[in-house]
Simulated assay, not measured.
Amino acid sequence: MRFDAVYLSAPATVLGEGLHTREQAVADALISAQDAERYGYRGLPTATAAPVELAERAARRTLAEAGLPAADLGALLHAWTHHQGHEFWSPAHYLADRLGAAAAVPLGIQQMCNGGLTAVDRAARDLAVDPGAGPALVTTADCFPAPGFDRWGGDYGVAYGDGATSVLVDRVPHAGAVRLLSVATVAVAALEGMHRGNAPFTPAPVSGTKTLLPRVSKKEFRALRPELDFGPVACRAVVDVVGRALADARVAPDDARLRAAGLPRLARHVMDGPYRLAFLAACSAPVVDLGGDTGHLGAGDAVANLADLLATGAAGPGELLVLLSAGAGFTWSAAVVEVM
């Protein structure tokens, strides 16, 4: 969808205060030296705070930089992939209350690791179609502590860091703003079993009582559905979604204004395979490597990438950035933004 007057302001990232280095992980036998080298992560941030506490810090940073009181928010959208600190509970409402966003409608977005960009898209669509909709704050937060999660070795081609993000979505720009030109999304629901495998349904959450190991469900899925090879499917989805986002933004794939792109913070060998190659087949924007010191931030990669690209001056006024996001299900989203 194309957006004519929607802005993303003051993107912020808050990482866990600890750091578990690659060398420590190898020494602790959490990942082999060979895989650690292939993955390319130098270290993963670790947090003692709950994910929503990190999200609150990021949100306060965004609101302060944007100069917008929380009381002026019309919506607060919070996205996550993993346990937020309580069961049978709404972390979005917790954040709205903690921030003093009494007029905001809190909404939880559960699109797994595609949640951050999905929330931005939802907030932008509301602003585009509803004249009464107020500015929206989008937050994400995820932490992956042991023993409930094996952050280094529990999955294939990705390691997980603790962190939160926040960005303001509004019809007018605030400090640190970019103009949102478009967001496109595609999905391949046949891949949902990658994160389910052949395990039976359970009557209650098992997080905390057993270690979640996505690599196990992915291995089971490959045995159950060998005809669904994730690599080629992902390549086609990336080419499709990036092409749609560029077309909606009315930007040619080789437009000279395309200065940089942020992709999911996956392992280096995965990025160099289906994701980078597919992206470059659809768009000329140079891919910037951003996740070496953070790992994958769950639902937060896209907003964290925007914050880092702006902080490093990857593009100047009038130039364009492309954000690509992906999440279990599987769903891919791409956004095109113009730097102001």
Rank of each mutant, 00 (worst) to 15 (best):
P226K: 11
S217Y: 06
R171I: 10
R171Q: 09
R265F: 06
R250A: 15
L246N: 13
S217G: 04
C235Y: 00
G262Q: 04
G163L: 09
V178C: 05
G193T: 03
D229G: 11
D248L: 10
R179P: 15
A159N: 11
P232Q: 12
R196E: 09
N198F: 00
L263C: 02
D229H: 13
D254N: 07
G197L: 08
E192I: 07
F230K: 05
Y160M: 08
F201V: 13
A177C: 11
L263P: 00
E192S: 14
L213P: 07
P232E: 13
G163K: 06
G197N: 11
V183W: 00
H174W: 01
W152N: 00
P200Q: 09
L213R: 12
H174S: 03
A237V: 05
A260Q: 04
G161K: 05
R171T: 15
R151E: 14
K210N: 01
A261V: 08
R259F: 06
S182W: 08
T202Y: 13
D240G: 05
V186R: 06
L228I: 12
R215E: 03
A223C: 08
K219W: 02
A175K: 02
G176W: 02
A249K: 12
G163I: 05
L266H: 09
V183E: 06
V233F: 14
A190T: 10
W152E: 06
A237T: 11
H195W: 03
G193W: 01
G243M: 02
V188S: 12
A223L: 13
G208T: 07
M194E: 10
C235P: 04
F201T: 10
R179I: 13
V251R: 01
L212C: 02
G262M: 06
D150W: 01
R265T: 01
P205Q: 13
A184W: 03
R268S: 10
P200C: 02
G262V: 01
V188R: 14
A252T: 14
A175E: 09
C235G: 15
R225Q: 11
V172L: 10
A260L: 06
R244P: 07
D155M: 02
P173H: 07
A252L: 12
F149M: 00
